[in-house]
Simulated scan of single mutants.
Amino acid sequence: MEQHDHSIIQEINNTRVPYGTLGIWFLGQESVIIKGAGITMYIDPFVSDDLEKQGVKRMYQPPITPEAITNADLCLITHEHEDHLDPGTLRVVVKQNEKALTIAPAACRERLLSLGGEASNIVDADTDKPLSLFDSELRIHAIPAAHEELETNAQGQHRYVGYIIELNGVTLYHAGDTLVYPGLLELLRGHSIDLAMLPINGRDYFRTKQGIVGNMNYREAAELAAELQVDTVIPLHYETFAGNTERPGHFVDELNEKYPELKCQILARGKRYVYVSPNAFKAGNGLS
């Protein structure tokens, strides 16, 4: 593991972002840290070496270790695959962050309990019931995801989800692992999304034959972001495992050629990015 744990966590703790902005740290794959309104959340934290111990090699080492994560107020999990619900990371996170809530699809509950999570701190991601947390400073709406199909259990609960996050005057969509499926556009248009985080690694016959479940490709991600008229788009899920990668430059080229008015940000692993939304420049917010 790269030894940047202390400086990154200290930077997160010391970062104060004005209304209309979010602090974002990218850990690789679809793992990000989001901070706003004094709330620090981890989405799909995947920084352990558990998969490497099983012979699945990363193309890079994560910028922090699980043991560094001592500042989580909330953890969002999109689905149970180990590069999203990482046992080696979450086993440590739930131990070191005893008051932190974990929100995840119901299919993840037993796994989270087996990792030491307290039942009272685990909340099922219900796509029909938005959550209001931290005295309404944070609103979370789980969105069905199709990885590669929409799957539900007998109770109608979705196996895969993304999240609409309303925090600090910003509306963020973290898609999780998903294709663009019929109805997704209409569902997302019900929210005024400022910042979209979308997978771009795609899928194909040969990866499917190997049992690798796919996502939208970079062209589909660009089209989705443009259709939603988001302010900024960030590509995810493109550089962790050999054979299931994509070049983010292809995504940038697609946007530049077809949607040059759409802003894009490629995140550097372990480095702070402050997203500034149009709301930040409204009178009285301190950035005008």
Rank of each mutant, 00 (worst) to 15 (best):
G116L: 08
N285H: 15
T240H: 05
L113P: 05
A68N: 07
N153S: 04
L76P: 08
E110C: 02
T152I: 14
K35H: 05
P235Q: 03
E148N: 11
N13V: 01
G116Y: 10
P63Q: 13
S136W: 06
Q29A: 06
L133Q: 08
A226T: 06
N215Q: 11
A106Y: 09
A106F: 12
G202M: 03
A146N: 05
P260G: 08
Y273T: 14
L133E: 06
E151W: 10
Q10I: 02
L90I: 15
M59N: 12
V252M: 07
D44Y: 07
G36W: 03
I64W: 05
K35Y: 09
E261R: 12
L90Q: 02
V180G: 04
A221S: 13
L185Y: 10
V170S: 07
P63N: 09
S136Q: 15
H4V: 00
A280N: 02
R111Y: 03
G183L: 03
I12T: 08
R272T: 01
S288P: 00
P278N: 08
H84D: 08
L188K: 07
E118Q: 15
L133G: 12
E166G: 10
F134K: 10
S136A: 11
D135G: 00
Y205A: 11
I69R: 05
N215H: 12
A72P: 04
G211Y: 06
R58K: 13
P66L: 07
V56F: 10
L198H: 04
I43F: 09
F46W: 14
Y173T: 03
Y259F: 14
R91S: 15
G116D: 07
G162Y: 06
D50H: 13
A154N: 13
A154P: 00
M1N: 10
H141K: 13
L224S: 08
P130S: 03
K129A: 12
K35W: 05
N71D: 15
G169V: 10
E137N: 11
G176T: 04
N168A: 04
H191L: 00
G88D: 03
L255P: 00
